[in-house]
């Protein structure tokens, strides 16, 4: 890997840095919706379940992003269908679909000769090989996703907070749910070249959770999460180059470090605040 990076000034590194910042900020912002709707398990599942789409697209020579999104949509429908089967709760349906579709991806890959190198590229990303076309895809996807999230912000937040209330107002909660699930899947697949399928979970949950420690409103939270995602992407990339470790892993670990700092800061802050007040107001129930 060292031969690829001849210092931070190389075009490979510059492209990687741009991709890391773009993916980090996009996933950070989308991640807030993941938390608000309590969808982390869905994200984990999709990170596995989009895998066969990515593999098949790569085998057939299609765009990885298109393949992942296409298969991801199928899986979303599969989960929705399974969820309606009685005696199975959502999470077991997700578990079955997750492992099953991942196995399909592995099977397709294992039948090919150069399997093991491709596999690890999909799993942990190969950000140093991103092309200008990859970056263009990320920009286009990011603009569309953010436009949708901003345009439907009011409805999406209402749906996450009080779905029955939104349904009573005459909105189709199912359509809005589907929009969110699709948005998350698209963001996830877009981050595959940078951090791989398994570590995209990190960018879609950890920055948002860190941001939640600092701010209380949704819009600022999305901004802060995007900033944390972008910062983790850039810093993680530099660390990976400096210590010669996998970039996807370094980016995810940086995000976790930011989360750890945020949590520690918040809890010591609230302890200080409590000490400052001799008679604390009892917590509202």
């Amino acid at each position: 890997m060292r031969s690829v990076i001849d210092g931070f000034g190389s075009p490979f590194f510059q492209r990687a840095a741009i991709e890391a910042v773009l993916v980090g900020s996009l996933c950070g912002a989308v991640g807030v919706h993941v938390l608000l709707r309590r969808l982390p398990f869905f994200v984990v599942a999709m990170s596995h379940a989009t895998f066969p789409g990515v593999v098949i697209a790569s085998v057939l020579g299609f765009s990885i992003v298109a393949g992942g999104i296409g298969f991801g949509l199928l899986v979303v429908l599969g989960i929705v269908a399974l969820g309606s089967v009685r005696a199975l709760d959502d999470s077991s349906a997700i578990g079955v679909v997750l492992a099953g579709s991942f196995a399909i991806g592995v099977l397709v890959l294992s039948s090919r000769a150069s399997a093991s190198r491709d596999l690890s590229a999909f799993l942990v990303g190969q950000i140093l090989t991103v092309t200008p076309a990859d970056i263009a895809t990320t920009v286009a996807v990011g603009v569309v996703l953010l436009a949708v999230l901003v345009a439907l912000h009011k409805e999406l937040i209402h749906g996450a907070f009080d779905p029955a209330g939104l349904g009573a107002l005459g909105y189709s909660t199912r359509a809005l749910d589907l929009i969110v699930l699709v948005a998350i899947t698209v963001a996830l697949v877009t981050s595959v070249p940078a951090v791989g399928t398994l570590l995209s979970v990190a960018l879609l949950t950890v920055p948002a959770l860190a941001a939640r420690q600092w701010v209380e409103r949704v819009v600022p939270m999305m901004v802060v999460a995007a900033a944390i995602g972008a910062g983790s992407g850039l810093l993680g990339l530099c660390l990976s180059a400096a210590f010669d470790v996998a970039a996807g892993g370094a980016i995810a670990l940086t995000a976790s470090a930011v989360f750890l700092l945020s949590v520690t800061a918040r809890s010591s802050w609230s302890q200080l605040a409590r000490r400052g007040r001799p008679n604390p107001v009892p917590a509202a129930t």
Binding site: L35, R38, L39, P40, F41, V43, V44, V124, L198, L199, V201, A202, T205, V206, L209, D244, V245, A246, G248, G249, A250, I251, A252, L253, A255, S256, F259, V263
Partner: peptide
């Protein structure tokens, strides 16, 4: 922290740590 969110953080952190170690 919400159980699901906590699990997601742990997955991300631990798995990334493992990847970093192996990639050395």
């Amino acid at each position: 922290i919400d159980q699901d969110a906590g699990l997601a953080v742990l997955i991300a952190t631990f798995f990334a740590f493992g990847v970093v170690i192996v990639s050395r």
